[in-house]
Design a protein around this nucleic acid. Structure first.
Lengths: 146, 146
DNA sequence: CTAAAAGTCTACTAATGTTATAGGATTTAT
DNA sequence: ATAAATCCTATAACATTAGTAGACTTTTAG
């Protein structure tokens, strides 16, 4: 049940961008700054941010003084959206995926006990990640710092 | 967030063994029968059952008329135990794992927003898998069949 | 006692996925 | 024009996964 480094780095970067949004209007931040502050390999982060950009979650500005910033207010972006962009479906098995259903190979899906339980697991994960916004995470971090 | 085939096959096999326990005292079943009924490659299943045996979750009997059976009553075995044996820790990131903690590389664990949320995810998964027994799964399957 | 039926155990392989790194192309401010 | 930044694609090194192969051991039936 592991989160990939790609997903981890991407989520951490997005939380940083959400935090930056509070200091300046857009919160535009350069790759190298995110990379330095979060200790993420810069060229790897570049690919990740590009994927998030293509998914419409961040915008960017090229050239001198450019950088990345959230495409929407931080309370309009959920961790679930970021996760799915970088790591694919939340569901532990494809046969309970809402976004990318596929049969998993059990003889009868309707009476597959594993499928029932994994459906619960998927819903539990979704209830957290699809209902947690970047703004909520930033708020929680501030509470922890206090 | 994917369950491996190894984990999937192992969980399905264990649910079958739990069901078999209701028909005969031990519910002893041969690899080839599990393999046929669950459509799992026999030699792969062999390795999986061996791992479950070494973890003390099933017992076996060699020779003619042998097979595998649950080491305890089906209500004494949780899906969490099986999952961990075959796929490792439940936690999406090591820094929130109860069984196998390791730092994940964020600059400060105490104020890492991702870590907080992933802690919640781990707990949600654990609440399901560590509280669901094989007996409960079998019961649920029967309810679905009715 | 022997042969067949079952699990035991280890090694190997092919395919895939992960985690990067490299380097040129493009855009923008000065 | 130049420097600073993102854009984009390729590729390499490594790890994991899913499965296969085969020799070995134990047990029972005859």
């Amino acid at each position: 049940m592991r989160l990939s480094k790609r997903g981890e780095y991407g989520l951490r970067a997005m939380i940083l961008l959400a935090d930056a949004q509070k200091n300046s209007p857009t919160g535009m931040t350069q790759i190298k700054e995110i990379s330095a502050r979060e200790e993420i390999p810069a060229k790897f982060l570049e690919q990740i941010l590009l994927a998030l950009k293509n998914a419409g979650l961040v915008h960017s500005k090229m050239g001198i003084g450019g950088g990345y910033y959230l495409a929407r207010a931080s309370k309009e972006i959920t961790l679930g959206q970021i996760f799915r962009t970088l790591d694919g479906p939340l569901a532990p098995v494809k046969c309970v995926s809402q976004m990318a259903y596929e049969p998993c190979g059990c003889p009868d899906e309707e009476t597959c006990g594993l499928r029932m339980v994994m459906g619960d697991v998927r819903n539990a994960i979704s209830n957290i990640l699809d209902n947690t916004t970047l703004a909520a995470v930033v708020k929680r971090v501030e509470a922890a710092r206090a």
